[in-house]
Amino acid sequence: MPHDDHEVLAPILDRNIRALVERRRTADRTKGWQERLADAITRFTGSLPFVYVHLALFGGWILWNLPGSPLPRFDAQYVILAMAASVEAIFLSTFILISQNRMQALADERADLNVQVSLLSEHEVTRLIRLVKRMAERMGVEESGSPELDELERDVRPEKVLEHLQHVNDSGPGEPR
């Protein structure tokens, strides 16, 4: 039998989703007019109506200026068309880069949040392992002697992980680490 979304999702997950959506809406509301303009232009240029407009404009321009056309030719060598297309390409690529820069900033922000959540989760799991190990000791339960358990009990130092990752990247494949 089908469930509605509120029955399926845990309340904390629902709260987190709503918080993320509200944050995105707030960020959209606080954009300046220049960002809104760049977004609108980028959104339109990435759409099929933009392609259709260009097909009609460029197709009409070319047909108008064909040698056999009964209309008076104003761009026989298509120099004006080429110049207009080049200038348009410059501006469109600029708007796309503006949007990509903003998307990259948002991606960096999300990556930072993911790192923080992962570190918090790792810290909590480490604490739980220590707690369960102490409980097992008090209850007289023997552990399996897994060497990984001792490793998992230690806190991860993010700066040490990054240093090691950099070292491994710098050493190259097949070199001693």
Rank of each mutant, 00 (worst) to 15 (best):
P11M: 01
P11A: 11
L13A: 09
D14W: 12
R15C: 00
I17N: 04
L20Q: 14
V21S: 06
E22I: 14
R23H: 15
T26M: 15
T26N: 11
D28Y: 11
T30R: 10
R36W: 09
A38G: 09
A40R: 12
F44I: 02
F44P: 03
T45G: 09
P49S: 03
F50G: 01
F50A: 06
H54P: 05
L55V: 08
L55G: 02
W61L: 04
S69D: 00
L71R: 04
P72I: 01
P72D: 01
D75Q: 04
A82R: 09
M83Y: 13
E88S: 15
F91P: 10
T94K: 05
I98Y: 09
R102H: 09
L106W: 08
E109S: 07
R110V: 12
D112V: 05
D112S: 13
L113P: 10
L113F: 08
V117E: 02
S121T: 13
H123E: 09
T126H: 01
T126D: 00
R127P: 07
R127Y: 13
I129K: 06
V132W: 02
K133Y: 05
R134T: 07
R134W: 07
A136H: 07
E137S: 11
M139W: 07
E142D: 09
P147S: 00
V156E: 00
E159A: 15
K160H: 13
Q166N: 14
D170H: 08
G172T: 00
P173S: 04
P173E: 01
G174K: 00
G174C: 02
